[in-house]
Design a protein around this nucleic acid. Structure first.
Lengths: 205, 205
DNA sequence: TCGCTTCCGCTACGACCCGTAGCGTAACTG
DNA sequence: CAGTTACGCTACGGGTCGTAGCGGAAGCGA
């Protein structure tokens, strides 16, 4: 989304148009895929003029980032009583999210586009990636209060470990789902979680 | 590449044109990125008519898969004496490969396109992904002869474990490099390897 | 050497999408 | 009410797509 106007004068932008556009983008993305997704198509589905899209988003990739970002906020970390159960839960949730055609297509395409566009990369991090790191931090906090994990006094090291865990979880699930194209079922989640937590214990000792 | 003609009659296809096209594709991909890469541009760079491209590849994505596939064959698993050192070595190598602009752009874009195209997905697996699993199998074999890893009698379980390791390594490195956009340096490789091998020990016991 | 076959380069084409400009109108503010 | 901003619509030049048709070049078999 482009920077909000500061002034309060004149006709305000239609919020319904915004949500209609984002919904239309998700729907079209799921049906057509990235390469066949056009601005004109989105505008037609949203019942909006093409010019209206360009007034708010300068590029297809930015529109898609905003359209998909909200989907990732669905992810939660329900307290299941143990660190292993919590991790398994979020892994399965994340995999289910990636099964949805809009999500799987959008995520990879946008990341690909971002390899040549620093601004887009920053937008992705702000809108999607960094928001999900909260799950890692929350899970660790819970595990520490449960006594499952020791408290790391070195904050820099703790941050690095959190980043590592995030890359491993997100990367493995994405790779399994989108590249290997194999299902993330309960069994895989269990084995993967055992690998992760076992390794974590080895690293932290 | 499209299926090779069976007949030996007539003028054969120019092998030089093939390699020139693939090289031009890599160069243009690195300079322009995926979205601005056009068939006409590739043809012009390769000194070839646009129609010649379409006679051999039906889509941009297929051309790019073939152009990039050979880069992944550069990966090797030099014997460094221990499993940990071997893994660290291949992690750093893989990350260096992903730093190259052609590779980073191509891999994500092609995977994104493949989410709506089963044939392309199969092509990617055959040309790129499955070829690299040899590294995992070779590494395990070496570690077993060294006595660092026990031999798994259950072949099905052994295959599942190899797939898991592959997804974790490739996924984590890709995510770290392309999404988190942080460097894979020696230190990260060391910590990641410790996590992986520690977890592996925990799973296999 | 001569035909046959296949590939190549070139040109041209309709179709589509892009991103923008211009216009008249609608909605909200003071 | 006047002022300001957003909207829908139309139209446009420019670019890419993927294909068709042609004449000529390159190898193969007799």
């Amino acid at each position: 989304m482009v920077a909000v106007m500061c002034s309060r004068k004149g006709r305000p932008r239609s919020a319904e148009a915004d949500s209609a556009i984002l919904a239309a983008t998700r729907a079209a993305l799921g049906e057509l895929g990235w390469s066949k997704l056009t601005m004109g198509e989105v505008a037609a589905r949203a019942g909006v003029a093409k010019t209206t899209l360009y007034r708010r988003w300068t590029a297809k990739s930015e529109l898609v980032v905003d359209a998909v970002a909200v989907l990732f906020d669905e992810l939660e970390l329900p307290d299941r009583g143990s660190l292993a159960a919590d991790v398994e839960g979020v892994v399965v949730q994340f995999a289910a999210l990636l099964e949805r055609p809009e999500t799987k297509t959008a995520l990879m395409a946008v990341v690909a586009e971002a390899t040549r566009d620093e601004a887009l990369r920053a937008r992705i991090r702000a809108s999607i990636v960094d928001r999900q790191k909260r799950l890692v931090l929350l899970g660790r906090e819970r595990a520490q209060t449960r006594g499952e994990l020791p408290r790391e006094p070195d904050t820099a090291k703790a941050a690095r470990t959190a980043d590592l865990i995030f890359d491993v979880i997100a990367g493995a699930v994405v790779h399994r789902t989108l590249v290997s194209a194999e299902p993330v079922d309960e069994e895989w989640a269990r084995t993967f979680t055992a690998l992760l937590l076992g390794g974590l214990a080895a690293v932290q000792s």
